[in-house]
Computed example of a mutant assay.
Amino acid sequence: MTPQEKDARETQIAEAAYALLREKGYGGMSMLAVARKAKASNETLYRWYGDKAGLFRMLITRNVAAVSERLEQVSGERSAQALTELGEVLLELLLSPSAIALNRAAAADASDQLGAVLAEGGRGKVFPRIVRFFNGLSEAGVIRGAPGEVAELWLDLLVGDLQVRCVTGAMPPPGVADRAARAAKAQARVLALFG
Rank of each mutant, 00 (worst) to 15 (best):
L193N: 00
E88T: 07
A140W: 01
G115E: 04
S75L: 10
R47D: 13
E77S: 13
E120P: 13
S68K: 13
G141Q: 04
E120N: 15
G87W: 03
L86Y: 00
A146C: 05
E92A: 12
P128V: 02
D51Q: 06
I130D: 03
T84E: 09
Q187E: 08
V67Y: 03
I60P: 01
R62W: 10
V159D: 00
G28C: 07
R47A: 14
L158G: 06
T44S: 08
V167Y: 12
L137A: 10
A82N: 04
Y18R: 12
M58L: 08
A188K: 05
L55M: 11
T44I: 09
D156W: 08
T2W: 09
L86M: 07
V167H: 04
I60S: 01
R36H: 14
E72D: 15
L71Q: 11
L83P: 03
A107R: 06
F134S: 05
R47F: 15
G141M: 03
G195Q: 01
R104C: 10
Q73D: 14
L118F: 15
L155H: 12
Q81A: 12
G124V: 12
R36Y: 06
K6S: 07
A184D: 03
A33R: 09
V167L: 11
Q73T: 13
V176Q: 14
L93S: 09
P3N: 10
Y49I: 05
M1F: 14
Q4Y: 08
M171A: 13
A192R: 00
A101E: 07
S98T: 14
L91A: 02
L137T: 04
R179M: 12
D51R: 08
R70E: 15
K52C: 13
P173L: 02
A16Y: 03
A186L: 02
Y26E: 09
A99P: 09
